[in-house]
Nucleic acid binder design. Structure first.
Lengths: 219, 219
DNA sequence: ACCTGAACACCGTTCAAGT
DNA sequence: ACCTGAACACCGTTCAAGT
């Protein structure tokens, strides 16, 4: 059961499980792989967890919680799609922080995005991507509210999906890499190029204010 | 074995397998699910296929072959990142054709992108995405060769990855949808906006030629 | 010849028995 | 109390026996 009496062993099982699950996925990981590495018996596993799936879910959920916290922190800053000029350094810093977070949690990232596909927990990957899409949609919408002409060139739904696609492709790199890929710079650079360009392509009367002044942080 | 004598039954097994595999993934699909639906015995399965995995691989490979053919056909047209003006209608037509292809093969799409994750066949998803990335990289590179200043604003590697991310997110929609999502229009619209904007943001001396004239089809 | 289904191996889960 | 490992169920694969 969940409240079993040996917290050391319990913790050892959780830590070992993250490794084994990330390596093998939910279905291929053997309970005995976990218990062997943690130095206990198969039977003991069920003193601490209801099932293999239950432990998988627990580890994945903890990660998704932290992801949400990260995205919300991101939202609280002036990390706006249209942010340029003085705000841009800060934006890049936030991009780097997010990338570092994913890298630091790459075992769980793999569990969520790949290890549960084709199982009852397949929805974990959806939760991850939906969170990112949601965050991006809000981010774009906020900027469009601040600068309505942007609506002419940015479709929030599509833009959010595109951004989530970039995050996903980056996550795949992380999952397979042995040394942290540096992508934050590319992302920031892309955002800058595209958005400077988009702003410049807006009706001339709006050009100056959009390009010259960075968007404000939300109030 | 592969050359077993009842082609009808063999074909029935292949067709049924695609359904069962797409629904349940490689590990959760039971051989008996397939043989029951195809109206034969578990034992018969092994007269036709070496293993469950071998059949999975066969179905997935056929799909990836067709995907490659599609991407190459795409390359043979003037479906250039920078294509605008008269070429744009044709570009949209090609986008729609590609989307229709994925929709028509959504069972296999699901098998490749999700059903094999966490198994020995996980590399199928990599093959899918790598094909798309490769195609996109070539497409961008070809356009940069035709119009060198584009190199200042488009990083081929990053652009290709972004495009593959969009394809992936679209594929997820397809996999979950019950009616074909219309995304070709969004894609074409996005490409148009961003690229018009990017071209306009190039050094003034180059503006006119890039925006006024569509890029040529490759020679 | 082609097919069937009982038998075997593997692994998640349970539980009677040990310490 | 807490843990172990034999036992059971499930499913991929094999194979001796049927038609």
């Amino acid at each position: 059961m969940s409240r079993a009496p040996n917290p050391q062993l319990r913790q050892a099982l959780v830590a070992t499980a993250a490794e084994v699950f990330a390596e093998q996925g939910l279905d291929r990981a053997r309970v005995s792989d976990i218990t062997d590495r943690a130095g206990t018996s198969k039977g003991a596993f069920y003193l601490y967890f209801e099932s293999k799936e239950a432990l998988y879910l627990q580890v994945a959920r903890a990660f998704l919680q932290d992801l949400l916290a990260h995205l919300r922190a991101y939202d609280d800053e002036a990390c706006s799609l249209g942010a340029m000029g003085p705000a841009e350094e800060r934006t890049q810093e936030l991009d780097e922080k997010f990338c570092a977070f994913l890298w630091g949690r790459r075992l769980e990232l793999r569990m969520v995005l790949e290890g549960a596909a084709g199982t009852e927990l397949a929805y974990l990957a959806d939760e991850f991507l939906d969170s990112v899409v949601h965050h991006m949609r809000e981010d774009i919408a906020r900027n469009v509210r601040a600068h309505p002409p942007l609506a002419q060139v940015i479709d929030a739904e599509f833009g959010a999906m595109m951004a989530a696609g970039i995050v996903y492709m980056y996550a795949r790199q992380i999952i397979r890499a042995t040394t942290p890929p540096d992508m934050a710079r590319q992302v920031t650079r892309f955002r800058q190029h595209v958005l400077v360009a988009l702003c410049q392509s807006l009706p001339p009367t709006l050009d100056a204010s959009l390009v010259a002044a960075p968007l404000e942080a939300k109030p």
